[in-house]
Structure formats: structure tokens, C-alpha cells
Design a protein around this nucleic acid. Structure first.
Ligand SMILES: [Mn+2]
Ligand SMILES: [Mn+2]
Ligand SMILES: [Zn+2]
Ligand SMILES: [Zn+2]
Lengths: 155, 155
DNA sequence: ATTACAAATGCACAAGCTTCTCATTTCCAC
DNA sequence: GTGGAAATGAGAAGCTTGTGCATTTGTAAT
């Protein structure tokens, strides 16, 4: 009966297992579960602690150290991106292949995304002017979202 | 002879003592020394640890906790600005009253500054589009500075 | 100059986030 | 199925930043 049992990744129709392999990493249960959480989580931008708490809620016995290790490896492999919004701790999001910047509500923490080609272009020009070979950039706008939408302002 | 002894701050021709007072803070030796370091330090952008090490080098007996406390108070008073470049720890710089953004060399850590009004304007427009009341923003370009200038690339 | 008291400091300690250590377990090529 | 390298879990440790408290310092009024 074992002969016709499909492998788990085929069974569940997941594409991410191949992504993990492509990154040169062994396909382990923690890595698969963490990737699932990144895919399915309500919030697109999550901290390591957020991922860990989700794992606990799903009764997965995965250590916090592993979460940090795996997220860092996924970052190195280009599977996820790490951001450092003000406040010190990192947040991660699945790399969907399209660059974007962020606007964050300083009251409720909501994160929205945007792309502006004219800003991108000016950044490239500035780097060139300064003699820098640009590798990356981080643009975060901080503000207060609309009062009627902001969960931290119901008075 | 004491009658005609000028106060120390007049004696040294420093303007910052008044700035500290204007912020509603007592003019204490640690605060004066820390402000001096921010004014005179070679690097415009320094970490709390950098400031602390400078103090030690100057034989000042000022605790690291005081450095953090004072820098945070100066930030609150608008005397200094705090930035969170990638890497986890904060860097501080004297507030010279003019907003600017930063471009950082990922090899040697060098920081240069720039202002681009078209980027500033687009940011304001994007915030408005998204229904955010803009409070602040952080734009950092990461790249590699010119090889002949980069101290971490002499081969 | 002395006094008087709130404010600030230094030290030790603690919090919060992240990384490391290492014994044990898991994946995977054979 | 087995072997062995790679990965994990649990906890300790590291790093930056903040706090509690006894002591010192700055300030303004004597
Ligand atoms: Mn995003
Ligand atoms: Mn600057
Ligand atoms: Zn909000
Ligand atoms: Zn450089």
C-alpha cells in the first residue's frame, strides 16, 4: 500500500516545497509550516513572534529559535523580505516578486503598500549622482489612517 | 575674584546650553558633554555606544544609561534625530533644522545625505491618496560607495 | 556663599528581541 | 531500511534599551 502513496507535497498541491528546495534547503516540517503561515496569514506583514504564535495555535511543536532561523534563511534565499519599521523589531512578508514601499499607521499599526515609479527613478538618479551603486532601499511613510477605519481611535 | 568669574557656558562661548534650557532640561555636565560630542564628532551619525566610547576616551565618567536617557530626551526635545538604519541599533544626529534623507554604504557604513523635493511631494500625494495624515517618513538608500573611496575595499 | 530641594545621575539590574550552543531528531540519498 | 549530514528544540546568552533607587548635582532663594 505504500507503493501508491503520493508524497505529502504532491498530495497537498503545494508549490512552496519546490521553492524551499530551489533555495538549497531541506524540505522540513518547520519550514513548510512557516511558509504556509506566511501564505495564509491574515496580515501580510508579520513578526517572528506572530509566526510563532500562529504555530502554537495550530498545535505545531516548533521552537521560536527555529522560526527566527528559518525566516532568516528564507530571507537569504529571497523567499521573504525583512523590514525594520520604527519600533525596533523586524517584520517579514512573502516575496511576491514585485517591489513596493510601505505606509504605516502610527496609531493602529496598519500597513499599506504602494509603488511610485517617479520616486524609484529619482532614487536611482540620486545614487548615481552620489557615486553609489544602489543595492536596495527602504521607504516608509508614517501617518495616521482615516479615523473611521482606525481601530485604535473609536471614541 | 569670584565676582567677575563668568559662568562656564559664557566662558566657552557655547550656544547649546541655552538649547538644553529651552528644552526644559537642567544644564548638567553629562548633557553638555554629550551635545559637544554630537557637535564635534567626526561622523555626523553616531550610535549611543559611539557617544559613550567618545566620553570614555575623554575621561568623562558618564554612564551608558545616562547616554541613552539623554539622547532620548534630546530626541523628544527636537535637539537630535533618531534613525534606524538596517542592522538593529539606532543612530543619532544633531537636528540642524533641515529635513533630509540618507544613502548608506553597505560596505563601509558611510552615510551621505540628500534632499529631493519631487520625492517629498510624491510622498505627500501618496499619503493623501491613501487617506493618511502624514507624520513622518524614512527613506534610506543602500548601496556601495565608489571603490576608490570605500575604506572597506582596498585590495 | 549657604541652603534646600527637585532633578539628574550611576550603577545594577531587567526587559525585549534575536542569536547561539549542543544534545537529539529528522530528512534524504543510497 | 540505513547512515550521516542537516535541522531542530530548549534553554542560555547577547545586545540594545529602559528602570529603580540611593546618591549627587544644578538652581534659585536666601
Ligand atoms: Mn509589504
Ligand atoms: Mn542625517
Ligand atoms: Zn490606523
Ligand atoms: Zn563605502
Amino acid at each position: 500500500m505504500a507503493r501508491f502513496t503520493p508524497r505529502q507535497d504532491e498530495q497537498e498541491g503545494l508549490v512552496e516545497n519546490q521553492d524551499i528546495r530551489k533555495a538549497g534547503l531541506k524540505v522540513t516540517l518547520p519550514r513548510v509550516k512557516i511558509l504556509e503561515i506566511l501564505e495564509n496569514s491574515e496580515a501580510r506583514h508579520v513578526s517572528a513572534e506572530d509566526v510563532y504564535k500562529q504555530l502554537l495555535a495550530n498545535d505545531e511543536e516548533i521552537g521560536l529559535a527555529t522560526v527566527y532561523r528559518v525566516l532568516t534563511q528564507f530571507e537569504g534565499a529571497g523567499l521573504v523580505e525583512r523590514h525594520q519599521f520604527d519600533g525596533g523589531h523586524s517584520v517579514f512578508e512573502l516575496n511576491r516578486g514585485t517591489h513596493h514601499d510601505h505606509i504605516v499607521c502610527i496609531r493602529c499599526g496598519k500597513v499599506e503598500e504602494f509603488v511610485d515609479e517617479s520616486i524609484e527613478k529619482r532614487q536611482r538618479e540620486i545614487a548615481t549622482e552620489k557615486g553609489f551603486e544602489i543595492a536596495d532601499h527602504s521607504l516608509v511613510i508614517y501617518g495616521e489612517c482615516k479615523k473611521e477605519n482606525c481601530p485604535n481611535l473609536k471614541e
